[in-house]
């Protein structure tokens, strides 16, 4: 495609603008996190001072490290559990024709999109009946609401794409459906499972409403709630430096993961069409 010089300049200005808007807020959070004292309250575009005080402050709080561990545990267990249930379910949905399949798919999609607040009070009751209020299991259970339909949906889309011949060959050899899944599909499905798992992990890692409602003590919080509730001695004194340091700590791992798996994530997002 030929473009004029002027058009080219305009185009690259647009590109620079897109990149700047995308990364500037996080860049600014990083700069702020390295500032302390009065430097913190002086707006600037380039780093002018360097101090690790905010990081020391955040990392010396036992509760923050605990929250980080909680988040890792809860997100990992939720995703593992969802994938386990989703592999067999998506095989059934993608490869077998049965009555009510379309309706079931619609329902699964519906569940992944309905408002979390609509189940909040019912879920609160269930969690209390099960005796897991203020425990990590409460969040593992409640996160299943969105991770399970999401993983089933995306894996179903991926599994549909796999060629029929490999399955036929196995069936002719007398393989049962279980053998077909574990021996034929699972090895082919690994890339899709990594993608789906990663998106579900990000979803669980970022969740806020359930984490806020179903935990009460400082030691049971996840990272998003811990950051949201970081406050100073008075309501006037918001510890911006510490908040930015904590934000950088929880975001950096996500950004690294996203950049490494960039292509897979884009494929997963567009295949599923569902937000993680």
């Amino acid at each position: 495609m030929e473009r004029t010089v002027f058009g080219n300049i305009l185009f690259y200005m647009g590109v620079v603008l897109i990149v700047t808007i995308s990364i500037y807020p996080f860049y600014y959070a990083i700069i702020t996190s390295f500032e302390s004292g009065t430097a913190l309250f002086k707006p600037n575009f380039f780093p002018e001072s360097f101090s690790l005080e905010n990081y020391k402050n955040v990392l010396s709080q036992r509760s923050f490290l605990r929250s980080f561990a909680n988040s890792v545990f809860i997100a990992a267990v939720t995703v593992g559990f969802a994938l386990l249930l989703a592999v067999t379910a998506s095989y059934a949905l993608a490869r077998v024709t049965f009555r009510g399949r379309g309706l079931l798919l619609m329902t699964i999609l519906g569940v992944s999109m309905f408002p979390q607040i609509a189940v909040l009070s019912g879920l609160y009751e269930l969690i209390n009946i099960l005796g897991i209020y203020n425990k990590p299991w409460a969040l593992v259970l409640s996160y299943t609401i969105f991770t399970l339909p999401f993983t089933v949906w995306v894996l179903t889309t991926f599994m549909r794409e796999l060629p029929i011949e490999i399955e036929e060959a196995a069936i002719v050899d007398g393989a049962t459906p279980w053998i077909v899944i574990t021996k034929v599909f699972l090895p082919l499905l690994w890339p899709a499972m990594v993608t789906t798992g990663l998106l579900a992990f990000i979803g669980a890692w970022n969740e806020f409403l359930f984490a806020l409602t179903f935990t009460i003590s400082e030691t049971e919080r996840t990272v998003p709630v811990a950051i949201a509730l970081l406050s100073g001695a008075s309501s006037q004194e918001v510890p911006w430096g510490a908040i930015m340091a904590a934000s950088v700590i929880v975001t950096i791992p996500l950004i690294i993961l996203v950049l490494i798996f960039q292509r897979k994530i884009v494929a997963g997002l567009t295949a599923g069409g569902v937000k993680g």
């Binding site: 807020p25 970022n206 806020f208 998003p224 929880v250 975001t251 950004i255 993961l257 996203v258």
Partner: peptide, 8 residues
């Protein structure tokens, strides 16, 4: 921007 948690 998409990867950053909403709280953050």
């Amino acid at each position: 921007p998409w990867a950053i948690p909403t709280v953050v």
